[in-house]
Deep mutational scan, measured.
Amino acid sequence: KRLCLVCGDIASGYHYGVASCEACKAFFKRTIQGNIEYSCPATNECEITKRRRKSCQACRFMKCLKVGMLKEGVRLD
């Protein structure tokens, strides 16, 4: 089984260019469509796991980008 490159949960397929789970796919889409900017309360190096993926949105979004999710893949309509 493929794992989500962002949080390590089971991937539902390839989304925005990267093997990812439904939760991270939806999080990435919401962030881009809403043009949301997050800031990390710590040092921008929070560990993102299935259990902790909700704890820091800034680091989760940075990890989405780091593993290769493409903003261009999100439709803005």
Rank of each mutant, 00 (worst) to 15 (best):
F27D: 02
G73F: 05
E72T: 09
G68I: 00
H15A: 11
R75M: 13
T31E: 02
C7W: 00
I10W: 13
L70G: 10
D9R: 04
R53N: 13
S20A: 15
Y16D: 12
V74F: 08
I36W: 07
T31S: 08
N35R: 11
M62C: 00
F61Q: 07
R30S: 04
E37G: 09
K29Q: 14
R60Q: 14
R75F: 12
C7G: 00
K54S: 14
Y16R: 04
K71Q: 08
R2W: 06
Y14W: 13
M62H: 04
C4M: 02
S12E: 11
Q33F: 03
C21G: 01
T43S: 07
F61D: 00
L3K: 07
C4W: 00
F27I: 04
T43G: 12
G73M: 12
Q57A: 12
L3Y: 15
R53Q: 14
T49I: 06
T43F: 03
T43A: 13
G17W: 05
L65I: 06
G13H: 01
A19W: 06
S39F: 15
C64Y: 00
L76A: 14
R2Q: 05
R53L: 13
F61A: 04
L76P: 10
N44G: 14
S20Q: 12
T43D: 08
V67R: 05
T49A: 15
K25I: 14
R2P: 04
K66D: 10
A23N: 02
K63V: 04
F61H: 12
A58M: 07
R51N: 10
A19F: 06
S55M: 15
H15D: 07
R60Y: 15
A42R: 11
C56N: 01
F27E: 03
N44P: 02
T31Y: 06
D77W: 06
A58D: 06
R2A: 07
E37T: 01
V67Y: 05
C46F: 01
K29C: 06
E72L: 05
H15E: 11
Q33W: 05
G73Y: 03
G68Y: 07
S55L: 15
R51V: 12
I32H: 01
I48F: 06
R53I: 14
I36F: 10
A11I: 05
C21Q: 00
F28W: 14
G17M: 06
I36C: 11
L76W: 10
C7Y: 00
C4E: 03
R52L: 14
G8Y: 09
A19N: 12
C24Y: 01
M69I: 03
I10Q: 09
G8A: 10
V67F: 07
G8C: 05
S39W: 15
M62F: 11
L76G: 13
S39H: 14
